[in-house]
Amino acid sequence: MVDLSTRIGDLAIKNPVLTASGTFGFGLEYADFVNLSNLGGFIVKGTTLEPREGNPYPRMAETPSGMLNAVGLQNKGVDHFINHTYPQLEGIGTEVIVNVSGKSVDDYVAVAEKLAALPEIHAIELNISCPNVKQGGMAFGTTCEGASAVVSAVRKAWPRHLMVKLSPNVTSITDIAKAAEGAGADSLSLINTLLGMAIDIERRRPMLSTVTGGLSGPAVKPVAVRMVWQVAKAVNIPVVGLGGIVSAEDAIEFIMAGAVAVQIGTANFIDPSATQKIIDGMEQWCERHGVRSIAELRGCINA
């Protein structure tokens, strides 16, 4: 029997497998394929103060070993989440983490204050790294000052676990990570998507309505592993790794780089039961290798 349980700071989860925001809807979309209570937790679609229609179609293009998206935070707003979605998620048997986004610091704070009224939401993930919105989003995550301002403001409004999702589209991710830690983050998740672009050469037009978009999938995994390794060494708060994980072996690679847990994103689109297969695969890998607890593997590369 392998112990897959882990802690993201004060947040105890039954196994290290979470789902990445925007790739798992509100969880319920996947209920036919995964027993949601088997997950370590899931992170619901980015939520903003006001409803957002998102960007025009086309919003997605497949690229070699990856995909670009430019959804642009389409969501029905935090009040809809509180009144319609949350009641369906109560008692679901796993951690539900809400990804929070905004155009301004005040927006982030207002969403966090509203979510604080929901007793079963033990953590929020602050999205300071969305590349697909004109205002806010990544703008907060690409400077130390921006990251610090939004994290410290939300820290005052949000009493429970505060995870901050970092952008890879920066010169030094460790500087941003330290700024978020200094401003009161309880944990960091990384990486959000890499800013990318693809062109339909027959039509001589960009593939996405927004021209550029966020790259995810196996193509980004080596970049993500590198950044998780760098950040885990640079900060004293837990790191949750994501970026291109499609198998148990990929997940273990992130744990070895220093992550306490992982998020599964694009893999959910390839196989809606990917999360369960990754949990099972991690357990089997540990059994085969005589590993009793997943914690033994964390940061074990000694590099």
Binding site: G22, E29, K45, M60, V71
Partner: peptide, 22 residues
């Protein structure tokens, strides 16, 4: 037939602009 990723209503990539929004 819009380009889609998940097919399950989760990723919001395949949206069509309708009279009731995306």
């Amino acid at each position: 037939e819009n380009k889609m990723a998940c097919g399950l209503g989760a990723c919001l990539c395949c949206v069509e602009n309708t009279t009731t929004g995306n």
